[in-house]
Design a protein around this nucleic acid. Sequence first.
DNA 1: TCCTACGATAGACATTGTCTAAGTCAAGTG
DNA 2: CACTTGACTTAGACAATGTCTATCGTAGGA
Lengths: 139, 139
Amino acid sequence: MSDLLERLRGRGWRMTAQRRVVAEVLDGDHVHLTADEVHARAVTRLPEISRATVYNTLGEMVTLGEVIEVATDGRAKRYDPNAHRPHQHLVCGRCGAIRDVHPAGDPLADLPDTERFGFTISNVEVTYRGICPNCATTA
Amino acid sequence: MSDLLERLRGRGWRMTAQRRVVAEVLDGDHVHLTADEVHARAVTRLPEISRATVYNTLGEMVTLGEVIEVATDGRAKRYDPNAHRPHQHLVCGRCGAIRDVHPAGDPLADLPDTERFGFTISNVEVTYRGICPNCATTA
DNA sequence: TCCTACGATAGACATTGTCTAAGTCAAGTG
DNA sequence: CACTTGACTTAGACAATGTCTATCGTAGGA
């Protein structure tokens, strides 16, 4: 079931009920929850889990590279467990829906040396913005 | 001097000391200030300007399309007056420095129809992340 | 089973942004 | 130039998100 949980265990993580619940809540494709959404769902399974623990746990998962932090709207950060397949995001400007997408080409290759200003570039984040089909019809 | 101010006046904006100061603070290339940084600089020129006015004014400039809102770090939004030349951003993960860059190619063209899920896509945001030369040496 | 270091907790605090009610003023009108 | 009016500004309360601290609990090895 939870690949995420397996990978974390393999890294010597001390396994607690709280961490298990957070990992379970995050598991799946096209999951992009905010920290508070993760907390809300975790509470239904483990009522006494605290906000701080959710924030800590998510932060550790990000540090370990098992979860990606996405800032699509300048509001709350979202957490994406799909960290091992490179992908970009498509965001609906009206309802905020997010899809994982896989563009062709390599955006890194598109940035010539003269435009790198001596930076050592480690990754590229691409966010496509538009209106989803659902919002387009109910406009 | 302030092209930004000229364009705003041309759109029927009521010109006030506060708006003038905000526009002046934002003027220039490679300017990517947070709202509170804008406020801090505005206060040195117009001590009684309020935070709410700075937020309002920046929001209006964004609505008018004269300034772009950039969320490079999930913290405070940054405001980029260089709205009329399409460009992307290069961000230092250590010190937070931001440069405007102009990649070759069109990222929109890289997203095949099968990956658009019926969305009507209006724009693409690309953020290159890395370490700037300054931080690389003082590591 | 016992220990202990690592993890969890509640809640204060910090940062960023939004809203409201009341006062002020830019700019058109006469 | 003085008047008027509605748009603009203000202070400060409030809201949303995230961080920190001191204390308590417990996973997992000895």
